[in-house]
């Protein structure tokens, strides 16, 4: 496929003090697809995501968005491009309702007064657009929601703000079986609606269930970025644990054993 990726990183290096966390990492994500980002603990997944979200700056490399080279110097720059990150801890206010959480910090107003009706309409429309049926009322307090529903609200919040690229950090880590299925269904629907989805996950079953591409990080290097249909689960495990699998993955360097 020769579609240009909406988000493309080339040759990213990132160090924290003396520790180099990312080495010459390339990463791309395409509209209408779910790209899974996998890797063992400490492989650099979170650092890469924080670089994409503008929370960390990188030392070298190119950040390209919709084919253009861009400068991302902070979270607001990333949000302006349409990159929304849903963090694992969700960051929702328990004492506010769904609408208030979705619009927090970016409320619609008429004069000094909050325009509750418009916000409620937009929130309901966004949830309906994602075919969310698990939420009874958008005026429910978040403290009354289940883990899956909270995740849904956090994702809907990202979509509401015109997110073009939605990055989900371990969205199913804390969920039960049924709720995981709901959230994965939602993830798939986001991509089917034309959004670019980056899914960080430890769970290869989830990854194979919803992703179109898999990017495997190994010790701060991009071991391989492959189409999900071209690999088996055990090949991905090898990529995660040793950086290579058959002719896939990192070339052996310095005589290191694969």
């Amino acid at each position: 496929m020769t579609v240009t990726p909406i988000l493309e990183l080339r040759g990213i290096d990132k160090s924290f003090g003396p520790v180099q966390v990312l080495h010459d990492v390339a990463f791309s994500a395409y509209p209408g697809e779910v790209t899974a980002l996998v890797g063992d603990n400490g492989a650099g997944k979170s650092t890469l995501v924080k670089c994409i979200g503008g929370i960390h700056s990188f030392d070298a490399g190119e950040y390209r968005f919709e084919g253009r080279r861009v400068q991302v110097n902070g979270p607001r720059d990333a949000a302006a491009l349409g990159v929304e990150i849903v963090y694992q801890d969700l960051a929702l206010c328990d004492n506010l309702d769904i609408v208030q959480n979705m619009f927090l910090g970016r409320e619609k107003r008429r004069g000094p007064i909050l325009d509750e009706a418009t916000m409620e309409e937009m929130a309901a429309r966004t949830l309906a657009g994602l075919s969310v049926r698990t939420v009874k009322s958008v005026r429910q307090q978040v403290s009354h929601l289940s883990g899956g529903q909270r995740q849904t609200v956090a994702i809907a919040k990202a979509v509401l703000w015109n997110g073009k690229v939605v990055i989900l950090d371990e969205p199913t880590a804390a969920l039960g079986v049924a709720q995981t299925a709901q959230v994965l269904e939602l993830v798939r629907r986001l991509a089917d609606n034309g959004l670019t989805v980056v899914l960080i996950s430890h769970n290869l079953n989830d990854v194979f269930a919803v992703s179109d591409r898999i990017a495997a990080l190994y010790l701060g290097r991009m071991a391989a970025q492959v189409r999900t249909t071209d690999v088996t689960q055990s090949q991905v495990v090898e990529l995660i644990t040793s950086g290579r699998s058959g002719d896939l993955g990192l070339a052996t360097t310095n005589g290191a054993t694969p």
Binding site: K164, N193, G194, L195
Partner: peptide, 8 residues
């Protein structure tokens, strides 16, 4: 609003 979303 993303254009691809069709509000029901």
């Amino acid at each position: 609003m993303t254009t691809a979303l069709h509000p029901e």
